[in-house]
Design a protein around this nucleic acid. Structure first.
Lengths: 328, 328
DNA sequence: CTGAAAGCGCTTACAG
DNA sequence: CTGAAAGCGCTTACAG
């Protein structure tokens, strides 16, 4: 029914081997190549990628496993990964784990069955640690969150520095009771928390950090309780864009003026952070660069499987806006 | 090197056929099934999906071809599609066309080579029309944008009604010089424009619509020129979330107060539209429902290839906020 | 219910 | 450069 390589071979008057070579990188005379190309057009032939993958043992596929594509950070990174992949003739399988270790395990298993060339992965802490010991049949590049040192290549932000930078900025603006709301599942959030805590200590201030599931609803709920309590901070550091959004909602709900009653400083320079009033101070991540770098690390690893593990640490850029401006 | 079905068969003391049946839906005695499962665990066997697909002639793969995953509308839809797909044991290949017909053609061709089970596609007008005649070897479900009637199944918003609803609302709020900024590439934008124009005519008002490439930068540039000109409207209808963002930026850049000097009403109830001041009036699309419905149409089509073409039209929900409030 | 054998559609040594 | 043949790892009629 469907036209196969045999039909093309017959139409071109050559062997299937020659058709295969003409479509790939095999050595073929110009004359035969032209015949094959004409036959391909005439028959409407489409190579069967499943057959090609099985036979060649190369799937040319990269798995991209992230927490949730609806998190704008992952949206942007995934677009960069896909651009790089398709440019290199590879395909991408995208999976959303919702930060659930069971789903992570399931998708990692799927990646094995797909015989993927490699995986770009934003793991939970639990899975990142597991992967330090368990060997996988393909290279893994961690993004956003590195596992234990020496395990896998990774490209991450300098989270400690970024967390500390937000504190330094808030302190410079005159704030002292600076709280922090951090995601509870990722090593990234933990590092940002660590940078926050270190900077607070350095300034001789008492740290007050809370952790929440990394989504806007959970962050809003926690912030509402906190901000209405006697221990309410006068400024808040938020560990990602969703938590920042939740904190802003909480401030609005409680009628707290920003930055008058509550200063905010967070992560991810999404378009909307500039459009709200006041604009939100954030650490901008080089999202496209993260995706592109991850693909580069993956390709390098495929080329040199035994080279030492590399960790690419990118710096965030502080974008200072009204939400963290000096009080009064 | 890698463990195959033969190794499992050997370990379990059965034939490869029995292993295959035990892992699939074949009839196998409980005793052998247990032996096979034990052997699978013991060997760490992972079925090779390329081989399975080649042999079974079923890829269990759906292609999802959208303009740009970074458009929040497509982000949300794609998440819904992926959830439905993985729940049904299918995989998703995601492609970004950037509204470029050449890239659309390229990815459609890739879908053929992948032998996908079906494709969910948000096409440009050019490609939608092409697809009305050209036959594809797999069912296609259009989302967001339907092609010519009778061509393919589709799930779309009632765009004309939504466009008209925004006009009716603005008129009710006392606006009369109501302009419109619409995307130039999709049938969706065209329909929203048509609803806008019809409603303007119904109210005895002069329509003033412009079209732009559907991204925030192009929309901002066009809006800046328009709003600074003598023909500047007092209210603007925007045909999607990106264009709405561009228009808001233009208003801010020109120092136009919203809604005092310029009212805004657009599409896509993204979280940020509630957080800006004033909140933006938008038509909310049932994004999760659109993705889920598309998968349902696809499954139905696979089950009943010859049933008549279906077009599911979903209604938007108007979310009225400050940006369109009566002037003065 | 079970196994031996054929074959899905390609690519790739192996000869020439 | 080219072709005949083997085989990638599975599933599925076909017999029993």
């Amino acid at each position: 029914m469907s036209v196969g390589i045999r039909d093309v071979a017959r139409a071109a008057g050559v062997s299937t081997a020659t058709v295969s070579r003409a479509l790939g990188r095999g050595p073929v005379s110009e004359a035969l190549r032209a015949q094959v190309e004409a036959a391909v057009r005439a028959t409407g032939y489409r190579p069967n990628l499943s057959a090609r993958r099985l036979r060649s043992q190369e799937t040319q596929t990269v798995g991209l496993v992230v927490a949730d594509i609806r998190n704008p950070f992952f949206t942007a990174v995934s677009r960069a990964v896909e651009d790089a992949a398709y440019a290199a003739g590879m395909r991408v399988i995208l999976c959303n784990t919702d930060e659930d270790p069971d789903r992570e395990a399931m998708y990692l298993r799927l990646m094995e069955e797909e015989r993927v060339t490699g995986v770009i992965f934003a793991p939970t802490r639990a899975t990142a640690e597991m992967l330090a010991t368990e060997a996988l049949p393909f290279p893994v590049v961690f993004i956003d969150r590195a596992g234990p040192p020496g395990g896998h290549d990774s490209v991450v932000l300098d989270n400690e520095a970024a967390g500390a930078a937000l504190v330094d900025h808030l302190v410079a603006e005159g704030f002292r009771r600076i709280g922090g709301l951090f995601g509870s599942t990722s090593s990234t959030a933990r590092e940002r928390l660590s940078g926050y805590a270190a900077a607070m200590a350095r300034h001789g201030l008492a740290a007050a950090a809370r952790t929440v599931p990394p989504n806007a609803a959970a962050a809003e709920a926690e912030a509402r309780v906190w901000l209405a309590s006697p221990e309410a901070p006068e400024a808040l550091v938020l560990s990602n864009g969703l938590i920042l959004m939740g904190a802003l909602r909480a401030a609005r709900a409680l009628g707290l003026s920003v930055p008058g009653s509550l200063a905010l400083a967070g992560f991810d320079n999404e378009p909307w952070t500039e459009l709200v009033e006041p604009g939100l101070t954030v650490i901008e991540q080089p999202v496209a660069e993260i995706g592109a770098q991850a693909m580069r690390l993956l390709f390098d690893r495929l080329k040199e499987p035994d080279q030492p593990v590399r960790k690419v640490v990118l710096s965030g850029r502080a974008v200072l806006r009204g939400s963290s401006r000096r009080r009064g």
